[in-house]
């Protein structure tokens, strides 16, 4: 559904409205067991952008092997994906109420039994190589579809990411696009305080990738960044999206201690108001102990 008609200011507005509804879903999943809210909020705009403007995919084309593939490698941000899939008709919105029910497949990490979930993840550093297998097969069959895979920045600590990046460069997988959700945090600590990643673009370039970097919350910037893929001949592409962990909720934005949260019903109600520009929520649930 790469709708050229949506591009431009109106399109950006529509995506922002959609992303707001996705964030509501994420917040509603942050209770009764909770979820990884910060990472979900950071990548919500990028996932909305991919599903509405970039991916050649639709709810009735999930078995079409000429569709584009999207792999969510970091996994714990799956509420952002499920919120998007629910809003776009891939899954019933009501189904999100089954979060953490043993009678459904919706839990803290993706399960590929869910429609449009191409692969399970959660163990970091796996889906770059899995997506390379899919990209390789598409090339073997002469297909034109592309394979997108979202990595977390903390996930880029894993050696298997760089091993796979080296191989993807060597194999010239120009139908492969990595999207890094650069929210500056790994689980409990800022990336630059623990294992600095910068200069991140240079690292991918050194592995033989074409790179771009953009504001992952600005739809006009995302429009620019995801045009003319692949960015160059004979090499995979990476877009580093600068984002804010917890984006949309000032009370938890950039908070190391709000990585995984399990809020009360009252806090959820307040957070939904905060999302819509009302007063900051008064959060009383215990925060994670960080250093």
């Amino acid at each position: 559904m790469s709708g050229a008609e949506n591009v431009g200011q109106d399109g950006a507005k529509a995506r922002a409205a959609l992303a707001l509804r996705v964030r509501e879903h994420i917040i509603r999943m942050a209770t009764e067991g909770g979820c990884f809210i910060g990472a979900s909020l950071s990548c919500a705009d990028v996932i909305v952008h991919l599903y509405t403007e970039v991916l050649d995919i639709a709810p009735d084309r999930l078995d079409d092997d000429s569709r584009d593939y999207f792999f969510l490698s970091k996994g714990h941000d799956v509420p952002a994906l499920y919120g998007t899939l629910a809003e776009l008709g891939y899954i019933d919105k009501d189904r999100l109420k089954n979060h953490l029910s043993v009678d459904d497949h919706i839990y803290w990490h993706p399960n590929r039994k869910m429609p449009a979930v191409e692969f399970h993840s959660g163990s970091l550093g796996h889906l770059l190589s899995v997506s390379m297998g899919v990209a390789t097969d598409i090339k073997l069959r002469g297909g034109n579809n592309k394979v997108y895979v979202m990595l977390g920045d903390g996930e880029c600590n894993e050696g298997s990411v760089w091993e796979a990046a080296l191989v993807a460069g060597a194999h010239k997988l120009d139908n492969l696009v990595v999207v890094v959700d650069r929210n500056e945090f790994q689980a409990n600590i800022r990336t630059e305080e623990l294992i600095p990643l910068e200069p991140l673009q240079n690292k991918w370039q050194a592995m033989g990738w074409h790179t771009r970097r953009c504001d992952g919350h600005d739809f006009a910037a995302l429009d620019q960044a995801f045009t003319d893929l692949p960015f160059g001949e004979g090499a995979p592409s990476v877009v580093i999206c600068d984002t804010v962990r917890g984006k949309g909720l000032p009370s938890i934005e950039k908070r190391a201690d709000r990585w995984f949260v399990n809020f009360t019903a009252d806090e959820i109600a307040q957070l939904l108001e905060e999302l819509h520009g009302q007063a900051e929520a008064q959060l009383t649930s215990e925060a994670l102990h960080v250093r």
Partner: peptide, 8 residues
């Protein structure tokens, strides 16, 4: 990982 993707 690639084998899994190819198998998929």
């Amino acid at each position: 990982g690639m084998a899994a993707g190819l198998s998929l």
